Amino acid sequence: MSKRIDVESLNVYYGDFLAVEDVNIEIEPRSVTAFIGPSGCGKSTFLRTLNRMHEVVPGARVEGKVNLDGEDLYGRGVDPVRVRSQVGMVFQRPNPFPTMSIRDNVLAGAKLNSRRMSRAAADELVESSLRGANLWEEVKDRLGKPGSGLSGGQQQRLCIARTIAVKPDVILMDEPCSALDPISTLAVEDLISELQEEYTVVIVTHNMQQAARVSHKTAFFNIAGTGKPGKLIEYAPTQEIFNNPKDRATEDYVSGRFG
């Protein structure tokens, strides 16, 4: 598990509208990379191109390359469903399947990928995934209860367990803590730090302190104005972005002068 991402000259479109322009970025395996920037700058749109979720939107398309350990995820004949199992996504709001138990939520992705397994193998996958999401001890005695009955922070970790169960190489997180209270946010941040030991993790966040706490490198995206494409302005080790940025716009953003 855990693979390198190399993005080359990527342009992201919604129909004829260029939403994100000419992104070039290298993301190392077993690391946490944060995407920051003002609302509407394209960071979440770009994040979704990394597992081909962007193209689910009618008329959406990309130009350029997204390489996962050298394989172009947009190459001819590449199955987007396989891509999404390799590159998992955790969304802004916890979205456990409301009619499913905690156990069935964890297994949902694996079953969707037609993985047949014995009851014992399924039980082992549920436990290992929930342990990987730091949730096992909290839910091990109520695996048959609905996932929607958990707290917000627990639901988000359940969604992370569901993602882990598919055994991806990369985990994408789109503002995973924005709907959580401070204690739940801390639990998810601690989990992110543990996940990078096995996975490549990419997180979009509006929380500057969170980016500084959890990431190794930070990418700052910006937009020149309404109707203009978002652009990657600066990408560097997180301490450099926050303490010694090279671009004035980066400095203004991380210091709170705009955004």
Rank of each mutant, 00 (worst) to 15 (best):
A187S: 09
R248L: 15
Y13V: 03
I160E: 01
E198K: 11
R30F: 12
V170W: 00
S85P: 03
K217Q: 11
V106P: 00
A122Q: 11
A165S: 14
I5A: 07
D22T: 03
S44P: 09
L180D: 04
C177W: 13
D252T: 13
K111A: 13
E194F: 03
G109T: 05
S114L: 14
R213Y: 10
L158K: 03
P58I: 05
G75E: 11
S128G: 12
I241D: 01
R76A: 15
Q86W: 04
E198T: 12
F220N: 01
H216E: 15
V204Y: 06
R84E: 02
S114F: 14
I102Q: 06
T226L: 15
D6I: 03
S118W: 03
R61Q: 09
F46G: 02
S215F: 10
A187Y: 00
M117W: 11
K246M: 06
A34W: 04
G75Y: 09
M100L: 15
K246R: 12
H206D: 03
T226P: 15
E8H: 15
V57T: 14
N113L: 15
I233F: 11
A187I: 10
Q156K: 06
I192W: 06
S9M: 13
S148C: 14
A212N: 12
Q86T: 09
G132K: 00
K217I: 08
G259N: 08
Y14L: 15
P237R: 11
V32A: 10
Q196A: 13
R119Y: 08
T205R: 10
N51S: 04
D6W: 11
E127H: 04
R257A: 09
T49K: 03
L135R: 01
A60V: 01
P168I: 01
E189W: 06
Q155K: 07
T218E: 07
M53D: 00
F221N: 02
Q239T: 15
L143S: 05
Y199C: 07
M89P: 02
L191R: 00
V214P: 00
Y14W: 06
V90K: 01
D181I: 07
C159M: 09
G230E: 02
